[in-house]
């Protein structure tokens, strides 16, 4: 177990370093000079060169990279070119909004996804299964900004149950969380159902029935735990997606989350902010995949304990 874990942690660190390298170089070769953009059209070449030197942009690119990496390890992500605030502060500030939205949306997605998926599998080919799977197709296919607008119109404007923009209190998050969570709930319910049905066909399920195991114990103890691996994979990816911010939902509901911050940064060529944002997304994804790998091992002893006497 500890060897498995250690290997995964090393991999994770490697991936983060690789991403930092790629991000830095790609952002430095794409067209669009941030200094030019920042100084406006009428800046003299001398002034531009001076600012460039001030920002360290005249250094060789590998020096810039190591400088940036070193600073980042010390918690200094640089200063936004345009807002002149530390990138880390801006990221943390936006992260607060995104995280709150993400937690609500994810809890909704997990609860409804798992419950609906299990119910659909248990009532396979019955009315409930068809109903839930029809809903899930709708959920997967409906673009979330469209769901968001429908929710705003109906629950916000018509019924006036929830506010439709901003993020001042808990009730502000209800509609965005539903709009964001719907698709993930739908995809989790589909994979749960498929995986459960696959497991139900296995020999060990028949063995369990032959022992007299029945009802929900058969479903939860014998089927669900075996069905979890693909579900954890999908649910983990989903958590990564949700935590890295939804540009559309945050825009529609005017929430200053990571998604909105990144879009603005890219449009302005605010390199430190974009680099910091990409590193944030990379770290979140890598950490979540690490957690998913650890969860695999918790669920399935074949992963935790390695091969054994197979065959």
């Amino acid at each position: 177990m500890s060897r498995y874990l250690l290997g995964r942690v090393f991999q994770a660190v490697g991936v983060i370093l690789a991403i930092s390298l790629i991000t830095f170089f790609i952002l430095n070769v794409i067209p669009g000079d941030p200094v030019q953009l920042m100084m406006g059209e009428f800046a003299t070449p001398e002034a531009i060169a001076q600012v460039r030197a001030q920002m360290g942009l005249d250094q060789p690119i590998y020096k810039q990279y190591f400088g940036w990496l070193g600073n980042m390890l010390r918690g200094d992500f640089g200063v936004s070119y345009f807002q002149h605030r530390p990138v880390l502060d801006m990221l943390l500030n936006s992260f607060g909004y995104t995280a709150r939205l993400a937690v609500f949306a994810y809890v909704l997605a997990l609860v409804f996804g798992l419950v609906f998926g299990i119910l659909a599998a248990v009532f396979h080919n019955k009315f409930l299964d068809r109903l839930l799977m029809t809903l899930s197709i709708a959920g997967v296919s409906a673009p979330n900004f469209w769901v968001a607008i429908i929710l705003q119109i109906y629950f916000g404007l018509t019924l006036k149950w929830f506010p439709i923009s901003g993020a001042k209190a808990f009730n502000y998050y209800v509609l965005p969380a539903v709009a964001l969570g719907t698709r993930y709930a739908a995809s989790i319910s589909r994979i749960t159902r498929t995986s459960m049905l696959e497991v139900t066909k296995q020999d060990y399920m028949r063995t369990a029935s032959a022992k007299g195991v029945h009802g929900w114990m058969l479903v939860m103890k014998h089927a669900f735990r075996n069905a979890l691996i693909p579900v954890v994979t999908v649910a983990g990816t989903d958590l990564g997606n949700i935590l890295t911010g939804s540009m559309l939902i945050e825009t529609v509901f005017t929430i200053d989350g990571i998604g909105k911050l990144m879009v603005d940064a890219i449009n302005q060529r605010d390199l430190p902010l974009v680099q910091g944002g990409v590193m944030y997304i990379a770290v979140i994804c890598v950490v979540i995949y690490l957690l998913v790998d650890i969860l695999y091992a918790v669920i399935d002893p074949r992963i935790r304990l390695g091969g054994g006497a197979e065959g």
Partner: peptide, 23 residues
């Protein structure tokens, strides 16, 4: 349910796949 496992029990052809892998 009461009879299965108690009154009569069964063993199967494939010992490889007939035991629950996660328990």
């Amino acid at each position: 349910h009461k009879i299965r496992g108690k009154g009569m029990a069964m063993i199967f052809q494939e010992p490889m796949t007939s035991l629950n892998p996660v328990l």
